Simulated assay, not measured.
Amino acid sequence: MSLKTEREAPQVVVHLPTALRALFPEAPPRVQVRAATLAEVMHVLDQRWPGMRDRLCDSRPALRRHINAFVDGERVDLTRRLQEGDEVILLTAISGG
């Protein structure tokens, strides 16, 4: 994303999961970014905290199986377009036996 494009993109709030913040201790629980899609959110997060995108996305690219993303209560994928003020919630899946 170019600097000009980033300035024009909507500002959204991203909620980062605790498990991810344990790997990136300098990352806050909530961060504001400018991004038009969830894929752009991943790019911006990776610019701020190198390696974060690899923890959230695989090589297809798609969200990893154990990562869920929600916007307005709806589960979304990387192609989701974002609007000014959207809240993106990233969660790690919980499994057990």
Rank of each mutant, 00 (worst) to 15 (best):
L3N: 08
T5Q: 15
E6M: 14
E6K: 14
E6V: 08
E6P: 00
R7L: 15
R7G: 10
A9K: 08
P10G: 09
Q11V: 12
V13A: 15
P17W: 03
T18R: 08
L20S: 09
F24C: 11
P25T: 14
P25R: 09
P25K: 10
E26L: 12
P29A: 09
P29F: 07
V33M: 03
A35S: 10
L38Q: 09
A39Q: 14
E40N: 03
V41N: 07
V41C: 10
V41F: 00
M42W: 03
L45V: 03
R48L: 13
P50S: 13
P50N: 10
G51V: 09
R53C: 04
D54P: 00
R55G: 02
L56I: 05
S59W: 08
R60V: 04
P61S: 13
L63E: 00
H66G: 00
I67R: 04
I67H: 01
N68G: 07
A69H: 04
F70H: 04
E74Y: 11
R75C: 02
D77C: 10
L78Q: 12
R81D: 15
R81T: 06
G85V: 01
E87N: 08
E87H: 11
V88I: 15
L91I: 06
T92Y: 05
T92S: 10
I94R: 05
I94P: 02
G96I: 09
G96M: 14
G96P: 12
G96L: 13
